[in-house]
Computed example of a mutant assay.
Amino acid sequence: MNDLESRIRTSFDRQSMMRTLGARLALIEPGRIAITAPILPTSLQQHGAGHAGLTFSIGDSAAGYAALTLMPEAAEVMTVEMKINLMSPATGDQLVAEGRVIRPGRRIMVVAADVWAETGKTRKHVAMLQGTMIPV
């Protein structure tokens, strides 16, 4: 495990929300992160689809950690603002959030994430997020 991966995993492991959701880091690259989370019975909305809160949580974290990969070693990151477009019900076995940096900056970073619902090899695009991160 390289220094970047170790740093991201250590930070991610401190997030009790991600543990509660069963979320896992699936990809760590400079400027890119993927997070998976099962669609658990405890994460459903009233119609039986994954709750938008689950979708937003892993999308926001994927985008934030993508930003963190490009920040100095001592930095941490927080969301300044985040917009979400929910495009389709989150039905399937798991969600995959793929975060990326759109524009790195010294004071703020523009980020985005796509969230997919997966069942086996079938993948459906359920949400897009765009936001701003700030180093703290």
Rank of each mutant, 00 (worst) to 15 (best):
Met71Gly: 07
Ala52Phe: 00
Leu44Cys: 01
Gly31Ala: 11
Tyr65Glu: 02
Val111Ala: 11
Gln45Phe: 06
Glu118Lys: 10
Leu44Ala: 02
Glu29Asp: 14
Met82Glu: 00
Ser88Lys: 14
Leu86Val: 02
Thr10Trp: 02
Met128Ser: 13
Ser61Ile: 01
Gln45Pro: 00
Leu25Phe: 04
Arg123Ile: 02
Ala37Tyr: 03
Glu98Gln: 11
Asn2Phe: 03
Gln15Thr: 04
Ala23Glu: 07
Ala127Cys: 09
Arg9Leu: 15
Ala113Arg: 12
His47Ile: 11
Arg106Asn: 10
Thr122Glu: 12
Asp3Leu: 14
Pro72Glu: 12
Glu98Leu: 13
Val80Asn: 03
Gly120Met: 12
Gly50Met: 07
Ala66Cys: 01
Val77Met: 13
Ile8Asn: 05
Gly50Asp: 03
Gly131Arg: 12
Leu4Phe: 09
Val96His: 05
Pro30Met: 11
Ala117Trp: 01
Met133Tyr: 08
Gly50Phe: 10
His51Thr: 00
Val136Gly: 03
Glu73Ala: 15
Met87Val: 06
Ala26Ser: 08
Leu70Cys: 08
Ala52Cys: 00
Ala63Asp: 08
Ala112Thr: 07
Val115Ser: 10
Gln46Phe: 06
Gly59Thr: 01
His47Phe: 06
Ile33Glu: 05
Glu76Ala: 12
Glu5Trp: 02
Val111Trp: 10
